Computed example of a mutant assay.
Amino acid sequence: MQKPRGWRTSSYTQPNGNCVEVGRLGDGAAVRDTKHRAGGYFTTTPGQWTTFITAIKTDRFR
């Protein structure tokens, strides 16, 4: 199994630590909680990641 690489947080992340990190995983992505990095991560396919990002950009979560 491939390991995620290049973990990063959003440029909008606040210093309170309530955020997630995203790592590149092939064409998809891996996501983990910055406060609980040892707790693991979940992965997405390229299509799932694209759908998620589109939903964020179009305010579907409001």
Rank of each mutant, 00 (worst) to 15 (best):
T45G: 07
F52Q: 06
W7T: 03
T9F: 08
T9V: 15
F52N: 05
T34N: 07
G40H: 00
Y12K: 15
Q48R: 09
H36A: 14
S10T: 15
F42L: 14
V31K: 09
P15E: 03
T45L: 05
Q48H: 06
T9D: 11
R32C: 02
Y41P: 01
R8T: 14
K57R: 13
R62C: 09
A29M: 13
N18A: 14
D33N: 04
S11D: 09
Q2C: 08
H36I: 13
P4D: 03
T13G: 04
L25A: 09
T58N: 12
M1F: 11
R5D: 08
G17L: 01
Y41W: 12
R37G: 08
K57W: 05
K3V: 15
A29G: 07
I53E: 02
K3I: 14
V22Q: 07
G39A: 03
Y12M: 14
R60A: 11
T58W: 07
P15N: 12
R37L: 10
S11K: 14
S10C: 12
T34F: 05
I53G: 01
K35E: 10
T58C: 08
P46Y: 04
Y41R: 05
Q48N: 05
Q2I: 15
K57P: 04
R32E: 01
E21A: 06
F52G: 04
F61Q: 08
S11Y: 10
H36T: 14
P4N: 06
D27S: 15
V20R: 03
W49M: 00
F52V: 06
H36Y: 11
D27G: 13
A30P: 00
G47Q: 08
H36G: 11
F61S: 13
K57E: 06
G47D: 09
R5V: 15
H36D: 12
I56N: 03
I56L: 10
V20M: 07
V22S: 06
R5S: 13
V22M: 08
G47S: 08
T54E: 04
N18Q: 15
G23D: 01
R8V: 11
D59L: 08
A29V: 15
A38N: 11
G26R: 02
F61R: 12
K57L: 06
F52I: 04
G40K: 00
Q14M: 13
N18R: 15
R24G: 11
Y12N: 14
R8Q: 13
G39W: 00
F42T: 07
R8S: 13
L25Q: 04
C19D: 01
